[in-house]
Amino acid sequence: MKKIRISALVFGVIAGAIGVMAQVFWSIQPPQAYGLCMVCHAKDFINVLLNNFDWYDGAIAAVAKKGLMLTSITVPLGAFIAAVISKEFRLHFVENKYAAFFLGMGVMICGLIISGCPMRLMLRVSYGDVSGLVMLAFMVAGIGLGTAILKRRAQKQ
C-alpha cells in the first residue's frame, strides 16, 4: 500500500473540524468545548471505572455519566494501525524510567487544575474565553523555559 503522508496543516484543519462537530452534532455536549481532550477523557474513563469502589469518589463530567469515553484507548490503537501499515513500528527501549513516569503524573495534575490539555485550551479560546488566552501565554512562556533547559543540556555534552 502506498504511504499516505499528511502535512501538519491538514491535520490541524481536520482536528479542528472534528472538535467542533463532536459538540454540535454528535452530542458530547454538556461540558462545553469538550470534544477533544486527552487529559479530560482519560480522567473520565478512569473515574468511571474506579467509582465502583466505596472509598473512591472521583468527579466525572456530565457527558461521562451517560456513556464511556474511549478516546484515551483508541488513539494509541489508531497510531498502531498506521504504524503497522507503513512498517514504521519499532519497539524502542526506555531511556530513563522514572523521568517518564513522573513527568506523566505532573502533566496530568497540571492539566486537571486548568481543566484541559493544550488542545482543549485552544478550543476554549475559540469559544470566547479570555482567561484561556492568558493561560496560553503562560504555557508558551513555560515552553520557552523548557527549550532553554534542553539547549543547555545539549551543550554540556
Partner: peptide
C-alpha cells in the same frame, strides 16, 4: 474520533 486522530497523528 480516537482512531481517526491516532491514524492522522501518526502520519503527520
Amino acid at each position: 474520533i480516537g482512531i481517526v486522530l491516532g491514524f492522522f497523528g501518526q502520519r503527520s
